[in-house]
Every structure is written in structure tokens, then in C-alpha cells.
Amino acid sequence: MSGPTASQSGAEPNQAGRATVDQLSQRDRQRLDNQLCFAVYAAAHAFGRAYRTLLGQHELTYPQYLVLLVLWEEDGLSVKEIGNRLFLDSGTLTPLLKRLEASGRVRRARDRADERQVSIFLTPAGAKLRDVLACLPDEAGDRTGLDMQGRKDLLNDLVTLRLGLQNGLIPD
């Protein structure tokens, strides 16, 4: 990214050579490169591009891959359960599931007891992709430049970040 980092902004560096948030001026705190939200947003886009390359040869999108990951853990979940796991609403999830069904990777089935409920099941082709794509997390992880411990630490930090933000939000 361009622009000065916290340590280049004139603030005194801490032991690690970085300026603390308290040392940044108001103007520096408002620099794009100093925004945690933007760093996470930009990293998510970079992951999306990396996965687009890795998944393209299998004619899958990243959100479709996420659905498959959920179903590989537990097949036959309802649309609502999948949406809860992926933080997606049914309006976003339904078209994605229809495309996965059209490609022969999942099948949708209405619940006999409650016609409003739709469960999603892997087809043999969808189940087979689990083995085909087993190397994908390592391939994507290798592209980060982080070693395995760095990836685990980052994952833990991001989960903590997400939970903190979820717990800090005031519901409507």
C-alpha cells in the first residue's frame, strides 16, 4: 500500500518499531493505510482474487466453495442453517444454491413436514470435490506469505475480531 505507515507519520515507534495508536495524530488516524477495517477489506478482496484463480478451473465461485465446505462438514442442512454458518441471507444464498444445483453438485429438497423448509444435500459430484479440492487451503495459505503458525495466529485474531465486533453491535 502507498502512503506513510504509522511509523513514518512522525509518531514515536514502540519496541517493535511501530507507532502506537495513542501516538498517532488525529489526521494520521484518518489515513486510509492506518484503517484496520480497510486492511481487512483489502485482504478479503485479495483472498477473493486468489480463490477465483484456484477455483476457476473447477467452475466454482468462492461463495459456492464456502457452501460446499459447510456441507462437507454436515450434509443435509437447511438453507437457513447454511446461511447462519456463512453469514448470508436467503436472498443471497438461494441463487447461489440454484447455480450449484444446476451444475450437479447439490440437490435441494423440500421438507415433507414443512414445505417452507428446503434442505441442501451433496450429490456424488459435490462429495467428490472434497478430495479434489483438499489441497486448496494450503495452496491459498501459501500465497499469503505466512508460515503455518502465522496463519493460525491470524485466524485466531480474526475470529476474535469478528466476535468482538458482533458482540459490540447494538441490534436494531
Rank of each mutant, 00 (worst) to 15 (best):
L122I: 06
C135G: 12
K98S: 13
S25I: 04
Y62N: 02
L133I: 06
R18V: 08
T61N: 01
L68Q: 02
S103W: 00
Q57R: 14
S103E: 09
G168H: 10
T92F: 09
T5F: 05
S25Y: 03
S7W: 02
L32P: 01
A46C: 05
L66T: 04
L100K: 05
R85I: 14
S78E: 03
T160D: 03
P13E: 08
N34M: 07
A44G: 04
G91M: 07
Q30I: 08
R52S: 15
V79M: 07
V79N: 02
V132D: 14
P124E: 09
E115H: 07
A125G: 01
G91P: 00
L60S: 01
Y51R: 08
A102D: 11
A113K: 09
V21F: 13
T20Q: 12
R108F: 04
Y62L: 15
Q149S: 09
G141N: 02
G17F: 08
V159G: 00
Y51S: 07
L36M: 10
N156D: 09
P63V: 09
R105D: 00
K98M: 13
R110K: 15
Y51P: 02
R116C: 00
V118R: 00
V21P: 00
S78L: 02
L66A: 10
A109Y: 06
E81H: 04
V70Y: 01
Y62V: 06
P63F: 08
R85A: 15
A113C: 02
A6S: 11
A43W: 04
V159H: 03
Q30S: 13
G168D: 10
Q15T: 13
D142A: 13
A46G: 03
Q35Y: 12
R29F: 05
L60G: 00
A43F: 06
Q64C: 00
V67F: 04
L154S: 13
S25M: 06
R143A: 14
D138E: 14
T144M: 09
M1A: 13
R27T: 14
G3T: 13
L136Q: 07
Q35V: 06
R31T: 03
R130Y: 07
D142P: 00
K98D: 13
Q117C: 05
R116A: 08
A39G: 10
C37Y: 11
G48Q: 06
E73M: 11
M1T: 13
G150R: 03
R52D: 15
Y65A: 02
W72P: 04
N84Y: 05
L69E: 13
